[in-house]
Structures are given as structure tokens and as C-alpha cells.
Design a binder for these strands. Structure first.
Lengths: 131, 131
DNA sequence: TTTGAAAAACTAAAAACTTCGTATTTACTC
DNA sequence: GAGTAAATACGAAGTTTTTAGTTTTTCAAA
């Protein structure tokens, strides 16, 4: 059985592009480029290159539509979020996700409302597991 | 007043080294090199280069001790953890830390025990804020 | 005080990432 | 089919990151 490589991480710019594709569902070079924020002046060919690389790395697939390619994420944002958190937890939190949450919860900028939401999430998950 | 630049992130190898320094408290090139795991064969000069760069970027300071330099983190691991989480939250979780926790809590590999610990952390923090 | 081993300083090669220009292809219009 | 505007393919320059070699300095021991 072939080993699945499910631990590759996106570079900064790749992530920037994936975020747009995740928001769009799918899109052409032009679609992604148009979504980039004011002041982010990237040549059309640069954008095309990034998407080509993402396809090489198998983060997206593409289909032909008329003259252009339409790029489609082959990995959901959820899945990538999980992968990223595992990586960060491993590299900076001694591989214990709890300490990651501990750090977050200790952040002064986190509001009580946010904390309440978090507790609700945890409670719901605990209830579902037993019930 | 000068603007503080408190948002620089460590590269992969820089983080690898900072982790050892954080564990050691402080250490020489040799100290760090000796702590790297089996199979991580890095030349002495490479390690020295990394530490020099970390000093340039002001993640560490150093003092002379006999023949060698002793490197000391100038940023605590806690602080860097917070910084990293903010960055990840911004780039991959629409700047809402709650959704980061939601993703983590939804991870099937998280045990009920871990969930319990997380809830306790949240409860304690909520209690302290009001009490 | 010479000498030798260890460290530092410096330089630079190799690899990865980011950006873009040129050339070619594509599909539509006349 | 020829013209043309838009897209792709390809190659590569510039930058940052990672790694390591060479030279110089430093300290201590003989």
C-alpha cells in the first residue's frame, strides 16, 4: 500500500491563493487575481504560476472551460485547518493540543463571549460522544 | 514613539533551534547541536549560522563565556506561542480564534480527557474574570 | 611563547519561494 | 483562413532559507 503524504503545508502565497479558491469554490486565474486585496499588485503570470504550482503539489485540480482553466481545491479548508493545527501543535506545543488551547484561552484579548462559545462547543462535543 | 515589530515569525529551522534554547534556558552552539535528535546531522558551522541569524533577528541575545558564546532567548516561548496562534488565526481562520478552537474540538483524535481539560481551563478563566 | 584544539567570523553554494517576461497556443470574430 | 485578444506554457531572475566550507581568532596547555 502506498504511503499517503498528508502533511505537506502551503507556503505563504499558496495559502493566500487557496483562501480565495476556498471562498470561491472554484475559479480561474483571473477570478483569484480579482479577489486579491487593494494594493496587492501581482502580475497575471505570477498568479498563473502559483496556481500551476498548487496543481503540481496536488492541492488543486483543474478543468478546461473555454479558453481558460478553472481551478478546484482538492483539499477542503477544514481538512487543511486540521492539518495546520496538528503541525503547529507538534512544533510549538510539545504535541499536546491542550496546551495550545490553554495558550489561547489565556490570551487577554479573548472576550468572555468567545470563551462562552468555546465552552459550548466543548460541551456539545462531550455530550455527543456519550449520548 | 518607535513602532515595535512584534509580528515576525520564525522559519522552520529557527523554530527548531529556539525550541532547544527554550528547553535549555540558554546554551552554546554545541549545547543546541547536542540536543538535536538522532539523524539530524547538521554541521557545527550550520548551527552557528542559524544562531547568528537568530541574533540578527533579535530572537536571542548572547554573552561571551570563555571561548564560546552563550545564546539566550529574548522572547519567551509563551509569547511566541501567542504570536503564532494569532498569525494562524488570521491567515487560516478568518481572524476568529473561536473557529480555530472549534476545528480542534471537532478533531476526532482528541480524547474526552483532553476535552475535559479544555473545559476546565475555560471555566477557570471565566470564573477568574468575574470573581 | 609556541602550539593546538575549539569556536567564531566570514563567505558562499544549494534549495525553496516569489515574481514576472517572452513565446506559444487557443478560441472567437471578420 | 487571417487577425486578435486572452490565456497558457516555459524559463528564469531575484530573494530568502538552509547548509556547509575556509579562514581567523581565542584560550589554555605544554
Amino acid at each position: 500500500m502506498r504511503k499517503k503524504k498528508s502533511n505537506e503545508l502551503l507556503t505563504e502565497v499558496e495559502l493566500e491563493f487557496m483562501n480565495e479558491l476556498w471562498a470561491l469554490g472554484e475559479g480561474t486565474v483571473r477570478d483569484v487575481l480579482d479577489r486579491l486585496p487593494e494594493g496587492r499588485d501581482l502580475a497575471y503570470t505570477s498568479a498563473a504560476t502559483i496556481l500551476r504550482i498548487l496543481e503540481q503539489k496536488e492541492f488543486v485540480t483543474s478543468r478546461k472551460d473555454g479558453k481558460s482553466h478553472v481551478f478546484i481545491p482538492s483539499l477542503g479548508k477544514d481538512a487543511y485547518q486540521t492539518r495546520s493545527l496538528k503541525d503547529l501543535s507538534m512544533k510549538l506545543f510539545d504535541d499536546t493540543p491542550v496546551s495550545l488551547v490553554a495558550r489561547l484561552v489565556n490570551d487577554d484579548e479573548l472576550t468572555d463571549e468567545a470563551l462562552g462559545t468555546i465552552r459550548a462547543l466543548v460541551d456539545r462535543r462531550l455530550k455527543n460522544d456519550t449520548g
